[in-house]
Design a binder for these strands. Structure first.
Length: 715
DNA sequence: CCACCTGCTGTTTTT
DNA sequence: CAGCAGGTGG
């Protein structure tokens, strides 16, 4: 197979592809053909005689890794050898498993997902008798987040608390103790959390020369994508594996760093030339993805960053529609408008060429309901995963017990499904099983006949060591009545998921490997991408992907950026980069939705929302503006001119002078204090002007509120 | 002593 | 709507 490098690549891409050896850093702007460059380089190396088995492709996210391997397979004309690439975590698992005899963990090890880790922390809390009766003791999810962040950033728990949760500082000691106990529980029960995979691999490579040499011999060429998302230990792993030879190609974009929250460190990519002396550096700046109007907007988003990026993307795709900014009454009507728009677009585009993006998984709930009603098929990425669904976890826990009889969280979960058994009994039984206290166990078996049944089954399965699919089938028989009684309203739907799991298990011969893949690689959903199906995705999961049409919803304060980030300049910068990532996914059409009110669940009513501060930065010519009419249509909205009285009209957000450049005296003249109306709140009285653009309004039915002037009309 | 029920709270992103 | 704490009844 001959690849025409001259035809397919621009000079910068070709330079990266032809790079002879030694370290190479590719700074690749969004849509600049980054994946293409990696894939062509891989093909080039193979054409020069490199063994495909000797090339390792690593990234942080599973999505990006799958996409990279898929495209590499396409250009090479065949699938890459298994083990050619994956996420850092899955690579770490495979390597650790291969060297498990050297790890001093004879019983094998099980990977815990977030829920398991939280359960184990709860166990630690229980045993240490911490936080009893203290309502403000941090929740286990919060603690897990803090513990993991401390590890990822490689600082003390106290430092993390100091930096972002000072209100929890009084608990620093308790949390420290919990964290230590948690680590001990993991070691005692053959459990690894996600972070352990990376640190254990580092330990192995650093201490065990034979293992290190084996890896270095095996992987001659290392390619790391999304390098800006690596954390400290990942960067050290790359260094350890590359060795003296330093055949590392790191690809990334500092402007797309969106994982600082889990310890990703942009300085990794900035420091690459120092970490790997003599590194060649190639910059890819021509964008092949988006039209110029879309790039104008994304360049503007970056221009507002506090840390300026030395980046200005350009394209030859001069023509195209401006991004559309759509004002809608509420998030509920936004969902309806999005469905309408998807229907309209689907006349010109295939459904899978359209994506709806959002900041957090729950923001798609209303939309999902409407899509189901409209009969539009969709696939959702991000948010709750297949394997996190309760019934799937149940069954996986039985399997885990077959693979690892000391898996404490798995015991807890499996045993509490037995009638009459709760957390305490479960803990006691697990303890008795693990330590082999036969007498104690016999008592438990007597008291709970169903327990005896489960123990016999697990024992038999462990001895038989069948292929995973057969073991799973036996366990499903056992689980069936549990499923029906635990989920009386929707067990048939859940059963389908279990069948999918069975099908997946059929592809494996090794139980441990099956379990690891289930927690480290998203099992491809039944709709595997190429089908004609709409994509819903969090912005994080959309990274590295592209669509002709992108609809971005909920561009309001508190949702994008999320509320918590408003307090910290650093977090706000990450939100900005996140918005940049979202907008740069679009090739032809970009639609941005700004609801003016959000449904507040616990109050059962709508509250007004303010547009995202990022939206307020955009100059009027960057976007076309639209608003929802009261009859549910969408009409062009001329900025500012729609205001009834020019003297009262505040400059529209887009024309507002840069904050800080305008002296207070130059601020727009305040509206008269007097009566006004608001779409949601109805009639009210303006009682004060709050520069630069807000009013305090006393509404007849809602009381005092602070409202952006733009949303008030005067009588 | 412990499982189960009831009522309150507060919602990010990934491996 | 889940996750969690505190009360209750077995």
């Amino acid at each position: 197979m001959a690849i025409d490098y001259e035809r397919d690549l621009n000079p910068a891409q070709a330079e990266a592809v032809r790079h002879a050896g030694g370290p190479l850093l590719v700074i690749a702007g969004a849509g600049s053909g980054k994946t293409r460059t990696i894939v062509y380089r891989l093909a080039h190396l193979v054409s020069l005689g490199a063994d495909p088995d000797s090339i390792l492709l690593l990234t942080f996210t599973r999505k990006a890794s799958q996409e990279m391997l898929r495209r590499a397979g396409l250009i090479l004309g065949h699938d890459l050898p298994a083990g050619s690439g994956g996420t850092f975590h899955s690579f770490a698992y495979r390597t650790l498993k291969r060297h498990s005899s050297r790890l001093g963990r004879p019983g094998g090890f099980t990977i815990m997902d977030r829920a398991d880790a939280a359960d184990l922390l709860a166990e630690a809390k229980e045993r240490l008798k911490l936080g009893k009766g203290d309502k403000s003791f941090p929740k286990r999810a919060t603690i897990l987040e803090l513990v993991s962040k401390a590890r990822n950033k490689e600082v003390s728990l106290a430092t993390v608390l100091q930096a972002e949760s000072f209100h929890l500082l009084p608990y620093a000691q308790d949390l420290e103790r919990m964290s230590e106990y948690y680590a001990r529980l993991k070691a005692d029960h053959g459990l690894y959390d996600y972070d352990d995979l990376l640190f254990e691999l580092e330990k192995l490579l650093a201490r065990d020369e034979a293992a290190r040499e084996e890896i270095r011999r095996r992987y001659v060429h290392l390619m790391v994508d999304e390098y800006q998302d690596t954390n400290l230990v990942q960067a050290r792993l790359v260094k350890l594996m590359a060795g003296e030879r330093g055949n590392v190609m790191a690809v990334g974009d500092d402007a797309q760093s969106i994982y600082a929250f889990r310890g990703a460190n942009v300085t990794n990519i900035l420091r690459f030339p120092q970490d790997f002396p003599g590194a060649a550096i190639v910059r890819l700046e021509q964008n092949y993805r988006s039209t110029q109007p879309i790039l104008d907007l994304t360049n503007a988003i970056l221009a507002g960053a506090a840390v300026k990026f030395d980046k200005h993307l350009f394209t030859t795709r001069e023509n195209g529609e401006k991004p559309a900014l759509v004002l809608c009454h509420s998030d509920a009507s936004q969902a309806r408008l999005v469905v309408d728009k998807v229907r309209e677009l689907s006349r010109k585009y295939l459904l899978h060429e359209i994506a709806v993006l959002f900041r957090a998984g729950y923001q798609a709930f209303q939309l999902e309901v409407l899509l189901n009603k409209a009969g539009i098929r969709y696939q959702k990425f991000g948010g709750i995963k297949f394997t996190e669904a309760a019934h799937i976890k149940d069954v996986l826990c039985y399997l885990r017990l077959v693979a690892n009889a000391t898996d404490l969280p798995a015991w807890q979960r499996s045993l509490t499904h037995i009638p009459g058994v709760g957390p305490k009994t479960a803990s006691g039984v697990a303890q008795a099983v693990i330590t082999g206290e036969a007498a104690k166990l016999a008592k438990y078996r007597e008291r709970f006949p169903a327990l005896a049944e489960l123990l016999v089954l697990l024992d038999a399965l462990r001895r038989r060591a069948d292929p995973p699919a057969r073991t799973l089938a036996a366990l499903l028989d056992y689980y069936q009545p549990v499923l029906v009684s635990a989920y009386p309203d929707d067990w048939p739907r859940r059963q389908q998921g279990l069948e999918e799991l069975s099908a997946l298990a059929g592809q494996y011969r090794d139980l441990e490997l099956f379990l690891a893949d289930v927690s480290l690689e998203t099992p491809e959903d039944e709709a595997a991408g190429q089908e004609d199906i709409l994509v819903l995705s969090t912005v994080h999961s959309a990274k590295g992907l592209e669509w002709p049409c992108v609809l971005l919803i909920d561009l309001v304060e508190e949702r994008f950026p999320v509320r918590r980030s408003l307090a910290s300049a650093e977090d706000m910068e990450e939100e900005r980069r996140l918005l940049y990532v979202a907008a740069t996914r679009a090739k032809d059409r970009l639609l941005l939705y700004v609801p003016e009110a959000l449904f507040i669940r616990h109050q059962q009513r709508h509250e007004p929302a303010r547009p995202s501060p990022f939206v307020l930065e955009w100059a009027p010519e960057l976007v076309s503006r639209w608003r929802e009419t009261y009859s549910g249509g969408v009409v062009p909205a001329e900025p500012a001119r729609t205001e009834p009285a020019p003297t009262l009209a505040l400059s529209s957000p887009a024309t507002r002078p840069e904050a800080g450049t305008a002296a207070p005296a130059e601020a727009p003249a305040p509206k008269k204090l007097g009566r006004c109306t608001h779409k949601i709140f109805g009639e009210g009285k303006i009682v004060a002007f709050i520069p630069p653009d807000k009013y305090r309004v006393n509404f007849q039915n809602f009381g005092l509120k602070v409202i952006v002037g733009q949303y008030l009309s005067m009588e």
